[in-house]
Design a binder for these strands. Structure first.
Lengths: 152, 152
DNA sequence: AAGTTATCTACAACGTTTGTTGAAAAACAA
DNA sequence: TTGTTTTTCAACAAACGTTGTAGATAACTT
């Protein structure tokens, strides 16, 4: 995601108006690595602007997604999550206990689909979700690596 | 997923009662490869039992998921999808146009997470979602294989 | 500074999923 | 079979995250 200043310029140059609410949201997203939900963004923004509405947050997040400055994610936690990290190719770690999401910066360049297995699909992208327990949700066990079993 | 007869037995042996509605749902799921939503299961079941309620469908699907006979999936199509194929390790192809979901039966043994990249997560499984266009939603282009770009 | 246009807040509605209730049916025993 | 107990059923309403609508408000242009 670009800086709040660059986003201000980008919004203006694409015919969008720049408001205090939007700049507030830009700042909230800036450097956020928690993949916040709209509600979470709203909660943080509200600390700075008490009257900002949830609808405004949704709208601005959609605008940012449309401009490619953030990406909306559905990793099965019940609500859409937003990821400002669009420059670095990565996948996601999702805690099955608390829903925390973290980036996993790694390229998996060999995801070749066996011939015929794509069933006529014209595949354009692949997302990998690694599920497990985040550090905070682990009982007392130790970290361990995992063979690439097929998921669900 | 087991056969309707085996599921009947399994439900009884786990203290659940077997009703005509549940057996109807068993039959609907049997051999279904479309990853139906609860609503879709309800629609098919309704053709056989006009009065069956959506709530009953949800409840039975949850029971089946709890017993490991089906898996609930969230692939970003707005509703939970249910997959009766739990015996064969696989991933999923999702049409970004119509939301169709198909199994992709293939192991990707190269999904090793680089040391340190798991950020303390204790990873238990990995799911890959391949997004693209299903045969019905393709304009006139041809199928093509895809480099493993990082997803959203 | 005034006009034009987009955005804001507040509210209501949407679709999916879940909680609640009395009625009905399944399982079990006699 | 019949009765007794317990679960599940259907119908209703509510929860949740998200989107639509409206008039009021604020940003951009001249």
């Amino acid at each position: 995601m670009k800086t709040p200043e660059e986003l201000t310029e980008l919004f203006r140059s694409t015919g969008r108006k720049v408001t205090a609410q939007r700049q507030c949201i830009f700042r909230v997203l800036q450097g956020d690595v928690t993949h916040p939900s709209a509600e979470a963004v709203h909660a943080v923004a509200s600390r700075e602007m008490e009257t900002i509405s949830l609808k405004t947050v949704y709208q601005t997040l959609h605008d940012l997604a449309e401009l490619g400055e953030i990406v909306s994610l559905d990793v099965g936690t019940g609500m859409t999550r937003f990821d400002p990290n669009v420059d670095e190719p990565h996948h996601h770690l999702v805690c099955r206990e608390c829903g925390r999401v973290r980036d996993l910066v790694a390229a998996f360049p060999e995801l070749q689909i066996p011939r015929g297995a794509e069933l006529g699909f014209q595949v354009g992208s692949a997302e990998i979700v690694f599920r497990g327990l985040c550090p905070e949700c682990q009982p007392a066990a130790r970290t361990r690596r995992v063979p690439a079993r097929a998921g669900s």
